[in-house]
Structures are given as C-alpha cells and as structure tokens.
C-alpha cells in the first residue's frame, strides 16, 4: 500500500474526489432545468453513473482492489444487465405494439 501516514496525506487523497462529486451534483441540478429534450434523462443518469463510478473507484477503492474484488463488483453489474435487458425486451416491445 502506498501508505499515507499523516492526516494531511489522507485528505489529499479524498478531498479532490469530493470536490469533483459536488461539482457534478451542481451540474446535474443545472442540467435538469436545461431544455435538452429527450437527452435530459441520459444526462442526469449519466452524471449519476459518473458519480457512482468515482465513489466506487476512489472512495471504495476499487482502483487499487484485487482482480477478484473488481470481478465481484462487475458481476453485480453484469447480472443487473441481464435483468434489465431481457425484462425491457418484453416491456418495450409490448409498448411499441400498442
């Protein structure tokens, strides 16, 4: 581990991430009121995904985690993708038919 030993070293690692997250929050809030039409959903959830990625990588330290743990996290996403894609295959194709 690239051991930070002083309190300052700990904060230097995490504070910039927090600033980035707060900036993204402000951006998301502003973008929600912007006239982006159908892109609004993509932008707001895209920002959320970016924030979640930052939290996972830098707060929960997936960036320095072992391959096994990254794989575990990826499994959660992959299986969610199965759930979403096959369920929505039905829901969306039902919608287009009616």
């Amino acid at each position: 581990m690239s051991a930070p030993v002083s309190a300052g070293a700990v904060w230097r690692r995490v504070l910039p991430v927090w600033l980035g997250l707060m900036a993204l929050l402000a951006l998301a809030c502003a973008a929600a009121y912007a006239p982006l039409g159908p892109w609004t959903v993509a932008v707001s959830f895209g920002i959320a995904a970016t924030q979640a990625l930052l939290v996972a990588l830098l707060f929960m330290r997936l960036d320095s985690a072992s391959a096994l743990i990254r794989l575990t996290a990826a499994c959660g996403l992959f299986w969610s993708a199965i759930l979403f894609s096959l369920s929505l295959a039905d829901v969306l194709s039902r919608l287009t038919r009616t």
């Binding site: 006239p35 982006l36 924030q51």
Partner: peptide
C-alpha cells in the same frame, strides 16, 4: 442515492 436523486428529483424539471 446517487441514482435515486435523478430518478426522483430531476425528471420533468425542464419544459
């Protein structure tokens, strides 16, 4: 919560 925020608060704000 980061995903609940746009789902609950950011939808339908513009226009």
């Amino acid at each position: 919560w980061l995903f609940l925020y746009p789902a609950l608060y950011l939808a339908g704000r513009s226009g």
